[in-house]
Design a protein around this nucleic acid. Structure first.
Length: 495
RNA sequence: GGCCCGUUCGUCUAGCGGUUUGGACACCGCCCUCUCAAGGCGGAGAUCACGGGUUCGAAUCCCGUACGGGCUACCA
């Protein structure tokens, strides 16, 4: 019987949930779900300068949007709370007491200025530039006096004497070894009494009984330091798994410049959460090297750390969009309409509440659109023509498609036949338009292009027959008339 | 400077001593077709960063170099 997995995602609310953090969360969540373990969300807000409540809510929203749920943490509680580090001050006081009792921490009275000059000097000479241990060798009486006098001080970790190296087995990168002499007595508690990240995170991970720490690569060098704290606390060292970074398309740090950097920005650009989850999950992890579409359920059934890649990945927006398109196409009409309505409402094309007829009409429209978009934000430009009273036609397009004699003959013929068909449904419309070339003596291509431009305003649109049907006979004929009237001055060709 | 990590088609990856290095996106061509998509078929694209080893045999193991990245804060 092995101990149940307890993993955590511990973001600092210094910004929104970005894709790198989202992927870390996904992997933690997936491992918990896979193993029947517990997924914990903890807010590491020890940096008062940059942490905000808005960022906290944005992160929670982003996680929920992706479909992640946590078993312990903000909004859900849990036996190991509170789950905000700013609410756990006592915990760190206790943690420091434990460290002191074991002789693993000591006060340091060096000022920032002193440290800075020493550090600069050390780096100039080359080699190790960490804390030189000045205050470590202070005799106990002196320390007691200075402490009693209330002299400002921080608390530092006392790296064990004689420790030569810190080794651990990373679940992703394998056996790792760090020489201990490159580890300095880093600060655990600041002058103001607040804990530093490297201390707070270990105290909490220990207390929350975290078994696996899955986090970004940027923490790899912190790990030996943190292991020393786990040991000093007398706690078993969890398994570590360090994820490689995610880079922007130019190989640089991911930022707004590359389009969306935050998960919610992807939502706003019309990405489906399932697609973003799928894409991110596969950015650094693979099921078998073949599978590209994988559901959340499959992820939870098959995720394992040993299939996580150890090399950094570049975010490929093209592939994400392709994947999003694949998910959109999988939606049935009902599902797509549900996604479509908010975008239509935002554009002022329809209302939140639909009549029975409007709903039926949207259900008919859905498959025409869902098959040809990669993102939801393409919906409005594609269907706007159906909602407008009149449409604008680009002069160049008009010139190309509507003004030639052939085009006018085609439009006239189409108008004639379309006004005669008994019903105004796609099949009849198609039959009518296919008959136009012969009676008007023009090429089929000319007919279809002219009617398309006249009815939709563009050369590219959803399928013509269906578009005309959705437009309705009255509106469709009006547009053909408008095209005929707007083309040339001579109205002789009017029916 | 020191310590650490990484390097397979443009991109994401499969590979874990013996395969013609497989798949996906993007790209190109053909088919389908009322435009655009979608779909189908096919193509091009990787001297597995480089140089040494180990081995009968290396993309796979070891060492070095180059390049990229991280840490080296009283940030996280």
């Amino acid at each position: 019987m092995s101990t149940p997995v307890r993993v955590r995602f511990a973001p600092s609310p210094t910004g929104q949930l970005h894709v790198g953090g989202a992927r870390t969360a996904i992997y933690n969540w997936a491992l918990a779900r896979r193993t029947g373990g517990v997924f914990i969300l903890r807010i590491d807000d020890t940096d008062p300068e940059r942490s905000t409540d808005e960022n906290v809510s944005a992160i929670l929203r982003g996680l929920r949007w992706l479909g992640l749920d946590w078993d312990e943490g903000p909004e859900v509680g849990g036996a190991f709370g509170p789950y905000f580090q700013t609410q756990r001050s006592d915990t760190y006081v206790d943690g420091l007491a434990t460290m002191r009792a074991g002789g693993h921490a000591y006060p340091c009275f060096c000022t920032s200025e002193e440290l800075e000059t020493k550090r600069d000097a050390a780096r100039l000479k080359g080699g190790f530039a960490g804390y030189d241990g000045t205050c470590r060798s202070l005799d106990p009486e002196t320390v007691a006096v200075r402490l009693a006098a209330g002299e400002p001080h921080v608390w530092r970790l006392a790296v064990p004497e004689g420790r030569t190296e810190v080794v651990f087995d990373d679940a992703i990168r394998g056996h790792l070894s760090f020489p201990a002499d490159a580890l300095d007595d880093f600060v655990l508690v600041r002058t103001d009494g607040t804990p530093t990240y490297n201390f707070a995170t270990v105290v909490d991970d220990a207390l929350m009984e975290i078994t696996h720490i899955i986090r970004g690569d940027d923490h790899l060098s912190n790990t030996p330091r943190q292991i020393l704290v786990f040991e000093a606390l007398g706690h078993v060292v969890p398994v570590f798994a360090h994820l490689p970074m995610i880079w922007g398309p130019d190989g640089k740090r991911l930022s707004k410049r590359h389009g969306a950097a935050s998960v919610e920005a992807y939502r706003d650009e019309g990405f489906l959460p399932e697609a973003v989850l799928n894409y991110l999950a596969l950015l650094g992890w693979s099921l078998d090297g073949e599978t590209t579409i994988i559901s959340a359920q499959m992820l939870c059934d098959s995720f394992s750390l040993d299939r996580v890649s150890s090399n950094p990945a570049i975010l490929d927006t093209d592939k994400l969009e392709w994947m999003n398109g694949a998910y959109i196409r999988e939606l049935d009409a009902e599902g797509f309409v549900a996604h479509m309505i908010p975008w239509l409402v935002d554009a002022g094309l329809t209302t939140v509440e639909q009549t029975e007829a409007q709903r039926a009409w949207l259900l008919q429209l859905a498959p025409l659109v869902s098959e040809r978009i990669k993102r939801l934000d393409e919906i409005v430009p594609m269907v706007r023509f159906l909602f407008m009273d009149t449409i604008e036609i680009d002069p160049a397009v008009r010139e190309k498609a509507l003004t030639s004699e052939n085009a006018r003959a085609a439009l006239a013929g189409a108008r004639e036949l379309l006004s005669q068909i008994p019903d105004f449904e796609a099949a009849s419309i198609e039959a009518a338009l296919r008959a136009v070339p012969e009676i008007a003596d023009v090429k089929a291509k000319v007919v279809f292009l002219a009617v398309r431009v006249a009815a939709t305003g563009t050369t590219v649109s959803p399928p013509l027959w269906e578009s005309l049907e959705l437009l309705g006979r009255e509106k469709a004929l009006r547009r053909l008339d408008a095209a005929l009237a707007g083309g040339v001055d001579d109205p002789a060709t009017h029916p």
